[in-house]
Design a binder for these strands. Sequence first.
DNA 1: CAGTGGTCTAGACCACATT
DNA 2: ATGTGGTCTAGACCACTGT
Lengths: 238, 238
Amino acid sequence: MKESKYVTIYKEWKEKIESGQIAEGERLPTESSLMESYQVSRDTVRKSLNLLEQNGYIQRGRGRASLVMPKQRYTFPLSEIASFQEVNKLSNAHAETEVVNLDILQDSHKIKKIFQQSVNGEVYELIRVRRMKDEAVILDKDYFVRDVVPRLPLNECKVSVYRYLEEELGLQISYAVKEITVQKANAEDYELLDMGDYNMVVVVKSHTYLENNTLFQCTESRHRPDKFRFVDLAKRKL
Amino acid sequence: MKESKYVTIYKEWKEKIESGQIAEGERLPTESSLMESYQVSRDTVRKSLNLLEQNGYIQRGRGRASLVMPKQRYTFPLSEIASFQEVNKLSNAHAETEVVNLDILQDSHKIKKIFQQSVNGEVYELIRVRRMKDEAVILDKDYFVRDVVPRLPLNECKVSVYRYLEEELGLQISYAVKEITVQKANAEDYELLDMGDYNMVVVVKSHTYLENNTLFQCTESRHRPDKFRFVDLAKRKL
DNA sequence: CAGTGGTCTAGACCACATT
DNA sequence: ATGTGGTCTAGACCACTGT
């Protein structure tokens, strides 16, 4: 499946903006000049600009060329489906991952409780601890449906599970529903994390769905409060 | 300025989905039948469907009609620019608002510190406490640039400031940048909120911008941890 | 005023889902 | 095989921005 023209154009300008080739506050070329340079129709150009706008890179308006937004406004560590590796890259913080446990769960009652809905077959349980500067600050508990992920090599868990799922298994991840709450730390948190003085954790629960709308993963990510930060760009809803 | 056709169609179907006239898991009419019933071009129909998809109401895919998503996935209490009143309505919880203080700040140094950037002129400072079931659980500190909001009637603060800004002043709110962190509670939190056993608060800081890209408001919303919940729909980024 | 983006139309081809 | 949505094109009119 070839990449669409408008995605190509989008990526090109996204890159230019991210790399700072176009300073914030600068204007993009007009739609007509973009049509000219790429030899495409206006609709195609506008689709690219739509993507740039939706992802917070530019702001558009009648009668004026698109404006490049300040960088801060499009670096969302968590509002997209981002794995720890990606967040890590953005924050420049050296971090390490330790696999605590990799197991297979068969008790359908227990599985249903974790996923908060019934799931066919077995699931992998992957528990990992994330370390920053030698402090254990994040506890990740991932659960994968084995009907979709039949094998989960241990060495892939140490790097990026998402990379393995998308590139090796060819899974098309579509969207995830995430919920953030703050809870009292439990025994497991105290055992596996360096909690220091803190007695609470930030809990990010997420359910991840494929293109064909099937639930295939859920995650519970428990953060020490000082190591948690979420940035979001909220647009006025129609 | 008349409302566009595609926005009208979008709102109509959004309403149908929210009210449950179309059950989750059901399919929408096909694009061609929508063109037929509204007597519009395909592009117009597709713009409406784009909006529905972006806001998490439907899921689309090649070769099949759009699918209505489960309700849970589009009730985001905080991922849009939602005022307390709107969130309140969704959560069915009876809540009250008490205005603690309404003041005008003139010290440009102090203002700059609050906004984290320089701002022209004076700003309103509005401090409110939100009560649920007679417990003070949220502390809201709003700051409005007086160049944009010259007057801020006290009685409007008790209801919805956003309603006043949009309907009375005709301001076009465009987007907001929000940041969520968890911090130790300070003296003010203990004084104004019923903190109970808790010693931390969830801090939501947001900067709100108008259509013309000017910063006109910033807010610091401090929540007791048990009364904080954030739900988000994350799409795979291109 | 000219230029720009916002909306709308009509028609075309393709890839994929369903049957 | 048919129908569906995904992409692309070409042309049109209007509302707003900037000068």
